[in-house]
Amino acid sequence: MQHSLTNTIEIEVKFSDVDMLGVVWHGNYIRYFEDGREAFGRQYGLGYMDVYNAGFIVPIVNLNCDYKRFLRYEDKVIIETIYTPAQSAKINFNYRLLKAKTGELIVKGSSMQVFVHRDNFELQLTNPDFFVDWKQKQGLI
Rank of each mutant, 00 (worst) to 15 (best):
T6D: 09
E34F: 04
Q136R: 12
V51A: 04
K101D: 15
C65K: 02
S111N: 10
M20T: 11
D35T: 08
T8L: 11
V61H: 03
T84R: 13
D50V: 01
G109D: 08
G55S: 09
Y29E: 10
H26Y: 10
K101Y: 00
I9F: 08
T8G: 02
Q124C: 14
K101I: 01
E80T: 05
K14F: 01
F121I: 06
D19L: 02
G27F: 02
V51P: 01
I57Q: 09
R72W: 00
N92V: 15
Q136M: 06
V24K: 04
E104H: 03
K108C: 08
L46T: 04
G139N: 06
V132Y: 01
M1H: 06
K68V: 15
V77W: 03
D35L: 14
G27P: 06
L123M: 09
F70W: 04
N94H: 06
I91E: 07
K101S: 15
D75P: 04
C65M: 07
G45C: 09
L105F: 03
G27Q: 03
I78M: 14
L123T: 01
T81Q: 05
Y52F: 10
E104K: 12
Q87D: 14
F70E: 07
F93W: 03
L97Q: 05
E104R: 09
M20C: 08
K108I: 07
R72E: 10
G22I: 02
